[in-house]
Design a protein around this nucleic acid. Sequence first.
DNA 1: ATAAAATGTGAGTGAGTACTCACTTGAAAA
DNA 2: TTTTCAAGTGAGTACTCACTCACATTTTAT
Lengths: 220, 220
Amino acid sequence: MNEEQWLEELLKFSGEDGKFSEKQLKILEAAIEMFAEKGYAATSTSEIAKRAGVAEGTIFRHYKTKKDLLLAIVTPTLLQSVAPFLAKEFAKEVFEHQYEHYEDFVRALWKNRYAFVKKYLPAIRVFWQEIAFHDEIQKQLKTVFTLHVYDKFANIVRHFQEKGEIEDIPVETVIRLTVTTIAGFFATRFIIMPDYVWDDEAEMERTIQFLMNGLRKKDA
Amino acid sequence: MNEEQWLEELLKFSGEDGKFSEKQLKILEAAIEMFAEKGYAATSTSEIAKRAGVAEGTIFRHYKTKKDLLLAIVTPTLLQSVAPFLAKEFAKEVFEHQYEHYEDFVRALWKNRYAFVKKYLPAIRVFWQEIAFHDEIQKQLKTVFTLHVYDKFANIVRHFQEKGEIEDIPVETVIRLTVTTIAGFFATRFIIMPDYVWDDEAEMERTIQFLMNGLRKKDA
DNA sequence: ATAAAATGTGAGTGAGTACTCACTTGAAAA
DNA sequence: TTTTCAAGTGAGTACTCACTCACATTTTAT
């Protein structure tokens, strides 16, 4: 019918079970676009209403406050961001040796998150721009990370450390280096220099080589 | 007299030659604090005036608009951020082999920028939070980077590639990996997880080892 | 068919908003 | 001493903000 499928997919994680009216989706779409462009604080509800083709009151029928509207965007985005770690099959996949090497795991993660970033870029922008200013979002991130991401990630790292594949440095450090290397590419690629001419495949290859060489265990 | 020396040092790069009244410094200090906490758009000039202990009109005596006040903070911060590359001695230092290895250069850069980040953290926060929303800041960054940073950095990288120290991958990629590795640490250390218990020296050591192993030329 | 509930509307409201301007102050220049 | 002028003031201005509410329309339940 319309081309807001990506939005409805994003909202899979919203709690409210799929009951979104046309106008409500229009509101969310407009809000994501405008928050991404000008920021939450600089975007007025009247502007959102206008862009969504909706009366201002309709926004407040669905969201008690402007901040509620923000959270309705940011919470699903956070959950989609760490979606691989929320999936039940995920840890299993890794430990039933579907990935023989840490590099295979990193590659799978990369491809998966690359597709995600391309698809939801505006919502991701909103998330990272506003997290600095809103305690609720910061707390959400901390909770989700410690509850659903950290342990699984740490187990994977330890697994490959025991296999002697990667250096015996603290798992926190391995996680940090892995995440910032991948996120550093995405940030440069999509936010800082989106207009530069990128050869994504080649750059992924170089970056993963860099990461693996950096983490690989040196023979004693 | 007061403890705003850091501010006056930041403003060395402001163009207006050191002529800052007491009240003007108070305004800048208050603005940096509040912009860092709540963001530019969510901070009102009346709040800034109140925190600075100044009448609201005084702000507009010194800065025609609120955005001018923002730029008076952001521009010096940008310039201080890339200060090592602005210094004349810098390129010389590198090419007269004051640094024998790329690692020495990275170490020098790290220590220097670590001190900088610790000192000016709130101003840096403002810079990175607002760059997303203001074209003028984006343009400034692009100009400064291409004009003063990129060429020097690229020459250094090429120098050590010719020496056979680091892998023959595009200089842009080497720069990106170096910068995001260092910046990734600073972001995690000071912004994302400032409350975590950090052993800064050890973490620097691990990160630099990671970086050098990642970039080191593999013998054919 | 009818009641009831959910969804949508837009003029209205009071609390700000960035910015102005006529005026005061204090210190240096004449 | 008198003049000049930058620095500082705060009430005032036109306007925008998030949010409300009485009412209209559409959807669902009975």
